[in-house]
Amino acid sequence: MTGRGPKAYWIARVDVTDPGAYAEYMALGPAALVAGGGRLLSRGGRAVALEGPPPRERTVVIEFDSMEAALACHASPAYRAARARREGAAEVEIVIVEGLDE
């Protein structure tokens, strides 16, 4: 163990309903996530459901150094501005899960 707490993983499941408006979110969202300490691990690549409901159109996984960092990023002014652009452009589910303690 390194003495650091567990990392956190932001997992978003997204169905885009208005591609034009969603493009406005994409112009701001990823940069806000990175500025908030996020590391994009997956952003809309191929997804396969082995159990449960089918995957949404896009599945996004972002790693943060901690749960607190992920929550702070979500609440940040930069990400709030990005979310405002996404309003009505997509159906979105976001969960943040803690990783295993290092």
Rank of each mutant, 00 (worst) to 15 (best):
I62N: 01
W10S: 04
E68Q: 12
G45M: 07
R80G: 05
D65W: 06
A89Y: 01
L50N: 12
E63S: 04
E102T: 15
P53D: 11
A35F: 09
Y22R: 02
I94T: 12
V97D: 07
V97K: 10
D101P: 07
G36F: 01
I11K: 09
V14I: 15
A21D: 04
G44W: 09
M1E: 13
S66N: 02
A78Y: 01
R80T: 07
A90Q: 05
G99P: 05
P55I: 04
T17V: 10
G45F: 04
S66G: 06
A69H: 07
A32E: 10
M26K: 13
A35L: 14
Y79Q: 02
A21M: 09
E87M: 05
P30C: 09
W10E: 13
I94E: 01
M1G: 15
A47T: 14
V92H: 00
G37P: 15
G52Q: 13
A21Q: 15
E24N: 15
G36L: 05
L71W: 02
T59I: 10
G5P: 12
A27G: 14
P19Y: 04
R80E: 03
L40R: 09
C73N: 06
P6E: 08
V61A: 05
L100K: 15
G5H: 13
Y9M: 08
T17Y: 02
V34P: 14
M1C: 15
T17C: 02
E63V: 03
V92D: 00
L50Q: 14
P19S: 13
L50M: 12
E57Q: 14
A23G: 13
A82W: 03
P55F: 02
V95F: 07
I96D: 01
G45C: 09
R85H: 04
P77M: 05
A47R: 02
D18H: 08
P19R: 08
A8N: 11
P30T: 07
G45Q: 11
G38N: 09
R43E: 09
V61W: 02
A89R: 04
A31Y: 06
P53K: 12
L50V: 15
V97L: 15
D101K: 13
V48D: 10
E91C: 01
G36P: 09
A31V: 11
F64W: 06
R39Q: 15
G44L: 07
A70M: 00
A82R: 02
A72R: 12
S66W: 01
G29H: 10
G29E: 10
R80C: 03
